[in-house]
Design a protein around this nucleic acid. Sequence first.
RNA 1: GCCUCUCUAGCUCAAUGGUAGAGCAGUGGACUUUUAAUCCAUUGGUUCUGGGUUCGAGCCCCAGGGGAGGCACCA
Length: 505
Amino acid sequence: MTPEAPTDDATEATGSGLEAEKSRRLALLDELRDSGTEPYPYRFDRTHTLDEVRQAWGTLEAGVETEDPVSVAGRIMLKRDSGKLIFATIRDRSGDIQLFISKAVVGDDEFDAIKRLDLGDWVGVVGTVMTTRKGELSVKPETLVLLSKAVRPLPDKWHGLTDVDTRFRQRYADLIVNEDARRNFEIRHETVASFRRTLASHGFIEVETPVLHPEVGGAHARPFTTHHNALDMPLYLRIAVELYLKRLIVGGMERVYEIARTFRNEGVSTRHNPEFTMMESYQAFGDWNDVMDLTEELITTAARDALGTTVVEIRGESVDLAEAWPRKRMIDYASEGTGVELHPSMPVEAARKIAADHDVFCEQRWGSGKIIEELFEQTAESSIVRPTFVTGHPVEISPLARVDRNDPHLTERFELFVDGRELANGYSELNDPVEQRARFEEEQAAKDAGDAEAGSVDEDYIRALEYGMPPTGGLGIGIDRLAMLLAGVDSIKEVILFPTLRPEA
RNA sequence: GCCUCUCUAGCUCAAUGGUAGAGCAGUGGACUUUUAAUCCAUUGGUUCUGGGUUCGAGCCCCAGGGGAGGCACCA
């Protein structure tokens, strides 16, 4: 790197802000090329990540200059020019380290070139490890090469980016300057990786099922609709993977799971993104109790793996996820919340009156079971802070779940609630093809009556059940919401790299 | 879809209805142990857009756009 004196191009680009800054840097590109330096070389060999340097030499006393050679790379985040010395802080994925650049070591020409590097540039360094008089661990370059020239300036070096719109639209810039953002996605990664390990240890096989579904099923939600040109048919982006995974249980795969991007054409909020990620698992020969046990193991293990602890802060309270999670029936929550004993077997008129007393709106077609769920949501849901299994959902709202062996109006179903949010959902799976058809037909009737989220009869799924599905326990966990819990953030956008946004104006 | 708040330099933020400013970044200069380096000098503005009120609008009013929060929706 031996650039010539600044050209007119570089100096005349005074003018205004960003455009001037970009043209100054673009002019530097030409200068570099003219002087024989490639501003975008193809590769660089490094011997250590910055954290590895810190691990290996972190205990060095102040004022020590080793002969230990290292080759490191990173982005220039800070630069302190002090005459014949330049201090620069570079950053790679593992951390930051200081470069101690001495004019006497690198030579006059290279020193001048380094002086003209910008914040944001990527550099590769070959040098030795040392500490400064104050004890700062540093790499002293013998040579320094530009790995990529940044032509757009970084956000504020101290405040980073705060405008949330810009943070999400320009996630790349957010990740460069905001450590919290990097940490959130690390936690998300560790959570998913932990799930895979736990599931593998129990003999689950990871599978991939269609994203494009010819029929909507497995949940109540409005789908995104698309069209296949060659086949000239409508297709729907999946709202759940349940029905495909249970087909695999019929096929004898016994234990399967999918980490599935799922799409629901509904509102955007701090808890909802139109595309989100669910982990769904199904295990032959198990029931809802096995699934609740698995849920606890998956989540506490993920917390341990991602955070190094099972204690998380929820609403200012320390909650140890490793303590057993209580199980309580939805009808008991709703009964306590309303002060009236509620059960799906009650006449719908009675349920409707209680709903009216609690300002809960009821659609005409709703039965007592659906109304009880609304009452639960109205009176109890948001007050559940610690992890709790809400169990025994009415049959009416659980078309794929098996009836409770002790109460024909309830199902062997649970939802996990933490911090007022639903994190997981599971049940003993309905495997009787005749009953399943009857439940589907009720769904179809609701759909015909105007319920846009109701399902319809999935004939192929019925056919699969007719071959015989063993007793099965199924589970779905919202990965985004779990990542929110573990990262301690209030918005789902903080754990989705590129959340859905309106197009830029 | 409804309500409230918000939008000023590349970034972070100021500015009673009265000349649009600071810090950082950038540019020029000094400095061989800095740590958000420091010091001196300095460039940089369609105040989201379009109307309106006013002698005068970044500020007040109306409409539109982006974003955030809440409500609704989301089993």
